[in-house]
Amino acid sequence: MNFVFFAMFLILLIPIYEAWQDEYIWQKMLAFASIATKTSIMILFISVLRDDWMIGVVGVIILSVGNAALMLLAHVIRRMNEL
């Protein structure tokens, strides 16, 4: 299980690197979308790993709410490009 978690951590590094090196904002948004999903899946994984129901609930809430934040931000950034 620990090995699987470590592999997830290594994959998480890829979008972080991408967000750091790319200056175009939509590429950063893609990296953010990827990171938001991956971290919440990792939180769910931790909850099963430790058999902790409370962390699992938090993981599911973050999974749905993180995406909502992303959509709000996407709309504001789209408005910025107007005019």
């Binding site: 971290t39 990792m42 939180i43 409370m54 938090v58 931000l73």
Partner: peptide, 24 residues
């Protein structure tokens, strides 16, 4: 956008240390 990434990573770290309320 990077602040959002920081928030996601911070939530992961807090959950890893068992602080579910802080992560939420």
């Amino acid at each position: 956008v990077i602040r959002g990434i920081l928030g996601a990573v911070a939530a992961l770290v807090y959950a890893l240390f068992g602080a579910a309320d802080v992560a939420l």
